[in-house]
């Protein structure tokens, strides 16, 4: 069922801006003037299966040990780059902490601890 859902819709990135309001059927236009041809269904299903498997594997992955590893921070990164990375991760995992999925919530709690530890290490304690 899940794969089918993913296979149902496709959309061109070129036209990602929302249309302003519900339009009458006759006024509707494609998101881009001429979307490129879609890949065959079989190829697309394979892509979907791969994406789903990667997502599942990522959730089940063992969490790395250090805050640096968990936050993807490397020695070459500047303070600004680390700050940007931490802000992105905080937004993601703060949202994840209220996910309906218990696994995502647990992962989010661990990540939030690592993000705060990394922030304190980089920018000092409050």
């Amino acid at each position: 069922m899940f794969k089918r859902v993913l296979a149902s819709l496709s959309k061109s990135l070129g036209g990602s801006k929302p249309t302003p309001a519900p339009q009458p059927a006759s006024a509707a236009k494609p998101a881009t003037p001429a979307p490129p041809p879609q890949p065959p269904a079989a190829k697309q299903n394979a892509a979907i299966q791969k994406a789903a498997a990667q997502a599942k594997a990522a959730v089940q992955e063992k969490v790395p040990a250090s805050p640096e590893e968990m936050c993807g921070v490397t020695a070459k990164m500047t303070k600004d780059q680390i700050g940007t990375q931490l802000k992105m991760l905080y937004r993601r995992y703060n949202r994840g902490a209220s996910s309906l999925d218990a696994k995502v919530r647990a992962e989010a709690d661990q990540m939030l601890d690592a993000i705060v530890a990394m922030r304190e290490k980089t920018f000092g304690e409050l």
Partner: peptide, 20 residues
């Protein structure tokens, strides 16, 4: 508020459109 986005079906002969 209300917003609309256009999407395209990705397979031939789709009989059921399912939207998450």
């Amino acid at each position: 508020c209300s917003r609309t986005q256009m999407y395209l079906t990705s397979e031939d002969n789709e009989k059921l459109i399912e939207v998450d």
